[in-house]
């Protein structure tokens, strides 16, 4: 149970990244053939006049957030390490539509932590999730948290408007403790596409300072808009919500690592700065598994 008083005027502690794991999942969840999926989807789309994708419903497609995220937990925490808070972040919804998966995952996580999900914010959701974790660390009631960023590629109805769609199933798990690599998040709102490059350049300059050992991990949308003179990695377009986090977890960058994500549908430019002192191992217990 998480019990907290009012938030403090001064932060008692700050979360530090102490573990990261990323995994691409192949195959299809058994949930794709769940008889409950079709009627739920039909109810969901009916008011919007959207057609179901019968081909996907018949053939079976997609993955379950719960199954993917649960597979990462043993690589993030062991049974002797109780977690206080578990947060799930996603853009496109789960294959298992009615499940409170974050709460389900709490039951699979040491410490049976308080759990919730952040969504309806596109690729900005994981950054907001980190801010929320930060705010619970600040009160002192939380000293270990897990963030699970998930996306699955199946959309069982016609897309009503252009929107990012994953081309693979990906889950990324991040572990936060009071020891580890210092990590901060900044989010700029009401950022119009025409101004993204300038805002990004200013934010990167402010976060970078005079650090030469800086790597920028940017989402695919920002490719071509990156400030010059900085080493960079561009995340895969097919991982629109997990991409930058997947690169962080599997790429093992060192030095000052900046993450940049632009989410035009909500007008948010999100940035994160992570200081990984070289030549120390970048992220304690970091593991990356792909395939």
């Amino acid at each position: 149970m998480l019990t907290v008083g009012p938030p403090p005027a001064m932060a008692a502690a700050a979360p530090r990244l102490s573990g990261a794991v990323g995994r691409v999942f192949t195959g299809t969840s058994p949930t794709a053939w769940d008889p409950a999926l079709r009627p739920f989807l039909a109810d969901l789309v009916r008011p919007f006049g959207t057609g179901l994708r019968e081909d996907l419903l018949v053939d079976g497609a997609g993955h379950s957030f719960g199954e993917m995220a649960e597979a990462l937990l043993p690589d993030l925490v062991d049974d002797r390490e109780p977690v206080d808070l578990l947060v799930l972040a996603y853009a496109l919804h789960d294959l298992r539509l009615g499940r409170s998966t974050a709460t389900h995952l709490s039951d699979r996580c040491p410490g049976r932590p308080a759990a919730f999900a952040v969504c309806d914010q596109g690729s900005a959701a994981p950054f907001t999730a980190v801010r929320l974790i930060e705010s619970y660390f600040a009160g002192g009631a939380c000293s270990r948290a897990v963030l699970l960023v998930v996306e699955q590629s199946a959309l069982h109805y016609e897309l009503a408007a252009p929107a990012p769609l994953p081309d693979r199933h990906t889950a990324v798990g991040l572990r936060f403790d009071t020891d580890g690599a210092p990590l901060t998040v900044r989010q700029r709102t009401a950022v119009e596409p025409a101004h993204v490059a300038a805002v990004l350049a200013a934010e990167v300059a402010a976060l970078r300072g005079d650090r030469a050992d800086t790597t920028l991990i940017a989402c695919a949308r920002l490719a071509g808009l990156l400030p010059p003179g900085i080493a960079h990695v561009v995340a895969a377009e097919g991982q629109p919500c997990t991409g930058v986090w997947y690169e962080l977890a599997t790429g093992r960058p060192e030095g000052l690592v900046l993450l940049a994500e632009y989410t035009p549908e909500v007008g948010v430019l999100s940035l994160s700065a992570l200081d990984v002192p070289a030549p120390a191992r970048p992220l304690a217990d970091a593991r990356a598994v792909a395939g």
């Binding site: 709460t103 952040v118 709102t189 009401a190 948010v268």
Partner: peptide, 18 residues
Amino acid sequence: EHALSFTLTHQACATGLL
């Protein structure tokens, strides 16, 4: 539009207090 908007969920009907 200037505000950061998002949904909190997965605590079902207890999400309001969260």
